[in-house]
Amino acid sequence: MTTRTALFVIDIQNDLTTDPATRIPAADRIRTAGEKILTTARRLQTDNIRDAKSDPPGMIVIVQHEDLPGQGPLKKDTPAWELVFPPETGEYLVQKTTRDTFESNPHLAEMLKRKGVEHIWAFGIQSECCVESTCIGALNAGFRVTLLRGAHSTYDVDGKSAAEVEKEVEHRLEGRGALIEDWEKVVRLWGAMIG
């Protein structure tokens, strides 16, 4: 039996990607990457294709952040909070109020393991916040983690460009044992399995 995997789509929400006043600099790139990654992953779901070498996602988890009152713009049931890529039938919606999806959802790791998940693919927003924290949470819970390079980003921060922050996050996660793969290469591999 091949390893089941989960694709985590982290916090791709309107405030961060569509609102011209608040979106991250690489919003267009993240939306384009997200659309291509999800389209391919969803086709793999439909065709129920499994391949040990490429390890395509066995399930899709859409993560949605909610800011608590006074903490930020992602207030539940507001346009800013809405997802760019809402879950489709059979996909999982996981809501959170902390950066680490696993911290916000203490039973999530156990549920994933019961379903046979051992490997998590991840992408989304913001690189140094919810993406990094969720990847660390997954590693700490015993999952293998692959972060999709080019499919995560953030704002320019502390005198660093978003691109510099992306690279720093990738370096830190590699130091913890995560793999970093170019999203386009992964999508090509998955796409080849569809034919």
Score class of each variant (00 low, 15 high):
residue 1 M to W: 01
residue 2 T to W: 00
residue 3 T to Y: 06
residue 4 R to L: 09
residue 4 R to A: 10
residue 5 T to M: 00
residue 6 A to Q: 02
residue 7 L to S: 09
residue 10 I to W: 00
residue 10 I to D: 04
residue 12 I to G: 04
residue 13 Q to R: 06
residue 13 Q to T: 05
residue 14 N to Q: 10
residue 14 N to T: 06
residue 15 D to C: 08
residue 16 L to H: 09
residue 22 T to K: 02
residue 28 D to S: 09
residue 29 R to C: 00
residue 31 R to Q: 12
residue 32 T to P: 02
residue 36 K to W: 02
residue 36 K to S: 14
residue 39 T to E: 13
residue 41 A to W: 02
residue 42 R to F: 06
residue 44 L to Y: 06
residue 46 T to S: 12
residue 52 A to L: 03
residue 55 D to Y: 03
residue 55 D to L: 15
residue 60 I to K: 02
residue 60 I to L: 08
residue 63 V to C: 12
residue 65 H to Y: 12
residue 65 H to P: 04
residue 68 L to N: 12
residue 72 G to W: 07
residue 72 G to D: 07
residue 76 K to P: 01
residue 76 K to A: 13
residue 77 D to S: 11
residue 77 D to I: 00
residue 79 P to W: 07
residue 81 W to K: 00
residue 83 L to R: 10
residue 85 F to D: 06
residue 87 P to D: 12
residue 90 G to K: 05
residue 92 Y to K: 14
residue 99 R to L: 13
residue 102 F to Q: 06
residue 104 S to R: 05
residue 105 N to C: 11
residue 108 L to F: 04
residue 112 L to E: 01
residue 113 K to R: 14
residue 117 V to D: 03
residue 121 W to L: 08
residue 121 W to D: 05
residue 124 G to K: 05
residue 126 Q to W: 11
residue 126 Q to H: 06
residue 126 Q to M: 14
residue 128 E to M: 03
residue 133 S to F: 03
residue 136 I to R: 15
residue 138 A to R: 05
residue 138 A to G: 09
residue 138 A to P: 02
residue 138 A to I: 00
residue 139 L to C: 05
residue 140 N to L: 12
residue 140 N to H: 06
residue 140 N to E: 15
residue 140 N to K: 14
residue 142 G to A: 02
residue 142 G to K: 07
residue 143 F to Y: 06
residue 143 F to W: 04
residue 143 F to S: 03
residue 144 R to I: 05
residue 146 T to Q: 06
residue 147 L to F: 00
residue 155 Y to L: 09
residue 155 Y to N: 11
residue 159 G to S: 10
residue 160 K to S: 06
residue 161 S to M: 01
residue 162 A to Q: 08
residue 163 A to H: 09
residue 164 E to G: 01
residue 167 K to G: 01
residue 167 K to Q: 14
residue 171 H to E: 15
residue 175 G to D: 09
residue 176 R to M: 15
residue 177 G to Q: 12
residue 179 L to M: 14
residue 183 W to I: 11
residue 184 E to N: 09
residue 186 V to W: 03
residue 189 L to M: 11
residue 190 W to F: 13
residue 191 G to V: 03
residue 194 I to T: 12
residue 194 I to A: 13
residue 194 I to C: 11
residue 194 I to S: 14
